[in-house]
Design a protein around this nucleic acid. Sequence first.
DNA 1: TCATATTGTCAAGCAAACTTGTCATTTAAT
DNA 2: ATTAAATGACAAGTTTGCTTGACAATATGA
Lengths: 66, 66
Amino acid sequence: MKNKLKVARAEANLSQGELAERIGVSRQTINSIETGRYVPSTVLALKLAAVFAKPVDVLFSLEETD
Amino acid sequence: MKNKLKVARAEANLSQGELAERIGVSRQTINSIETGRYVPSTVLALKLAAVFAKPVDVLFSLEETD
DNA sequence: TCATATTGTCAAGCAAACTTGTCATTTAAT
DNA sequence: ATTAAATGACAAGTTTGCTTGACAATATGA
């Protein structure tokens, strides 16, 4: 699964730490998702979508390997 | 987090087992998500959204407790 | 240049997702 | 009324999300 989090975050001018704080997770969690180390839960995806005011399906998308 | 999976599945006329097979998870996983025993990963949410041809945000939504 | 903020990553641990296997209960069809 | 299909749920085990703490590397700005 790939995601556009890094871009969305740049557009919103937020640091990983600030974003993490807003949705109540650790900075490492944001970093790990951005760098593809793991896939977030749906709750987290919905919260991220809310922060950036974009649908989940826009922020996250499936790959062949999924 | 709540979800409209049971309704969507009824509309699509699919059993839990059939749905599970389509997206490559166990039947218990579908059952557990429907009955709120746990929250799916974003990959699973995207796959479910794809099966029902509905956006993730329509199938899944946050609650106060999230 | 020096200082500070930001990012990437590792490790150890806990919690939650997901598995297979199994069984009881409910629903639907004959 | 009986059978078969579908659902709900539990248990034990594996994998993965997410945590805190830490440190090095990269960027940003005075």
